[in-house]
Amino acid sequence: MQTPPPISGVLEAALYAEDLVAAEAFYAGSLGREVVLRLPGRHVFFRAGPTILLVFDPGATAKPSQNTRMPVPPHGAHGPGHVCFRASRAEITAWRAHFQAQDIPIDAEFDWPNGARSLYIRDPAGNSVEFAEPHLWS
């Protein structure tokens, strides 16, 4: 078997939400992420450090692309997804205070066996949104 080429990182990650207006209010408003691209009824994309967070309407992305120059294959998911943002322990503390001030419920907050801290909330579509110390995967 041939050795695969290296992967240098994740360029984009996708979540799905039927209510893109609520998703944008959450990610741009509550989380302060810059909107990179928006196509009403189909998607809204946000900058998250060096990664782009794609939020698609699952019904719209299940349909084949009508753009022959960009024939993106149909894709999508139904039900809650998950995304994890990198955050230091101090940043997680600040995020907790930020969420409490906005009355955003915290699903869980704990230390993993390796000592990394994680904090979980839900977006308006029910996706699990985690903030974790990078050494979680070291």
Rank of each mutant, 00 (worst) to 15 (best):
G115C: 02
A60G: 03
Q66Y: 13
L39F: 11
A77N: 14
S30W: 05
V44K: 00
V55Y: 00
P74T: 13
G115E: 05
L54Q: 10
R86K: 04
D111G: 06
R96H: 02
Y27E: 15
R117P: 01
Q100I: 13
N67Q: 15
F26R: 11
R96P: 01
P113W: 02
G59W: 08
A116W: 10
A116S: 07
G29K: 14
P64A: 14
V36T: 14
G49Y: 02
F110C: 10
A87G: 01
P58R: 08
W95Y: 08
L39V: 13
R47V: 02
P40Q: 07
T68S: 10
P40E: 10
P105Q: 09
R47Y: 01
V55S: 02
A60P: 00
E34C: 01
P50I: 08
S65L: 03
L39E: 12
H43F: 14
A87Y: 00
A94I: 07
V36P: 12
T93K: 05
V55K: 06
F56R: 00
H98V: 01
L54F: 10
L53M: 13
A116E: 00
P71W: 09
P64V: 02
A60E: 09
M70S: 12
M70Y: 13
D111V: 07
F85A: 09
P40L: 05
E91D: 08
G76R: 04
A48M: 08
I52V: 15
L39Q: 08
G29N: 14
E109I: 11
A87W: 00
Q100P: 09
A97Y: 10
T68K: 11
L37S: 15
H43K: 13
T93R: 04
L37D: 14
L37W: 13
P80Q: 13
I104A: 05
A101I: 08
I106P: 10
W95P: 00
V83F: 05
N67S: 10
G81V: 04
C84N: 10
A108P: 03
S65D: 06
P58L: 00
C84W: 00
H82E: 14
P73Q: 05
W95G: 02
I106C: 09
L54V: 03
A94M: 02
N114D: 07
F26A: 06
N114G: 10
A23T: 10
R69M: 09
I104V: 14
F46G: 05
P80F: 09
I104G: 06
C84P: 04
A77Y: 14
S65H: 06
P40F: 04
A94G: 06
Q100N: 10
M70L: 12
A116C: 12
E109R: 11
L54Y: 01
G79F: 01
V36R: 07
L39M: 03
G32P: 08
G59M: 10
G79W: 11
A23Y: 09
P40N: 01
L39N: 12
L31W: 05
L39R: 05
P40G: 05
G79A: 03
D103C: 12
W95I: 11
I106T: 11
G115A: 12
F110N: 14
